[in-house]
């Protein structure tokens, strides 16, 4: 559905996007992850035909973003990182205005607006001023606006930025629903965790380059050849580590640094705590230990490992997969083994 060919954008002496060549399949959700300044927004703006490439080209639905701008605009719905509204308009008027700008016939606009507002759960706000909507609601309205001409491709630039957790969950559900309508969705974020479960494909971008791109599972396997499972527990650390090492799929076990340093150290109690209840809480926290298990198994194996630890008498408090920070991922991708992914 989308193909970029040596796509490049230069601003003065800065190359924001550098000879980028990727393919995005129709019906997929392609997540682009990268730090600030990676070139994500520039790429999205070029695909939305807002920014002409300095070199190279991109095809959207087979049409060049350079030569067939109007055709591409019909295919693409664009949600920028900051989506503005007209404060003097109601929600319904806002939708009807953009429908008109996309050439939707006047007779169809009301029904279309109602359908889209229902999709983003804003029907009850149709007659309210756009100015009165919360940030999450505005983002949903912006998404509805991007869908007003029934585009085949949705470009969502950092769509979840600034949203509260509930609004993020709602947005994710909405995107899944849109995917079920066979839309091709390209979404950017600075957080891999935000996109990992949502996207069918992931691209990691830095300094204008796509360091790695492909199916989410493959990228995940490439980024995390071994999962790191964090286990917090009470009791004997040596015993817990020894039992964990005998679990299926376990490669290595380490005691977390912060806990190993304070292991059994009663003198670490902060001064000034006199309340017995507080002291009990602090003592419990000090008794809590954490180990990191380098794990090569899948999620079923992880379930089995948890059972194994419980059966062995380890008092497990929490058992969760650790997520690498973007910096860790980028450091890993810049190592020689990963450079061929460019």
């Amino acid at each position: 559905m989308i193909e970029t060919r040596e796509l490049t954008r230069v601003f003065g002496k800065t190359t924001a996007v550098d000879r980028l060549s990727i393919q995005i399949e129709a019906g997929s959700i392609f997540g682009i992850v990268g730090p600030r300044g990676a070139g994500k927004t520039t790429l999205m703006r070029m695909l939305a035909t807002l920014l002409p490439p300095s070199r190279g080209d991109a095809l959207v639905g087979g049409a060049s973003i350079r030569r067939r701008t109007v055709y591409v605009r019909r295919l693409v719905g664009y949600l920028p990182d900051v989506s503005g509204v007209y404060p003097d308009m109601t929600v319904g008027e806002y939708m009807a205005f953009f429908a008109a700008c996309y050439g939707v016939p006047a007779n169809d606009r009301t029904a279309l607006t109602n359908d889209l507002l229902a999709l983003v759960d804003l029907s009850h706000r149709a007659n309210e001023s756009v100015d009165k909507l919360s940030r999450g609601m505005r983002q949903r309205l912006a998404l509805a606006r991007a869908l007003v001409h029934d585009p085949q491709v949705l470009l969502l630039d950092d769509a979840a930025a600034g949203l509260d957790p509930r609004a993020r969950v709602e947005l994710r559900e909405l995107l899944k629903e849109l995917r079920s309508m066979n839309k091709t969705i390209v979404v950017t974020s600075r957080s891999l965790a935000e996109l990992e479960d949502l996207c069918t494909h992931i691209g990691i971008m830095e300094s204008g380059h796509m360091l790695a791109a492909g199916e989410s599972a493959l990228i995940r396997a490439r980024l995390h050849p071994h999962r790191i499972i964090g286990v917090k527990f009470f009791g004997d650390a040596d015993m817990a580590i020894n039992h964990a090492r005998t679990g299926q799929g376990v490669v290595d076990v380490r005691l977390a640094a912060s806990h190993s340093a304070g292991k059994g150290d009663a003198d670490n109690t902060p001064a000034g705590i006199g309340n017995p209840e507080d002291e009990a809480v602090v003592a419990a926290l000090h008794a809590l230990k954490e180990m990191h298990i380098v794990f090569a198994g899948d999620y079923r194996d992880a379930t089995e490992l948890l059972r194994h630890l419980m059966r062995a008498g380890v008092q497990v408090v929490s058992f969760s997969e650790q997520t690498d920070s973007l910096e860790q991922i980028l450091t890993g991708l810049n190592e020689p083994d990963h450079m061929n992914a460019k």
Partner: peptide, 15 residues
């Protein structure tokens, strides 16, 4: 329009 961040939205329409 630029200050309201609506300029880009207008530009990507068919206007």
């Amino acid at each position: 329009e630029r200050e309201r961040h609506t300029f880009g939205l207008l530009k990507v329409t068919l206007l």
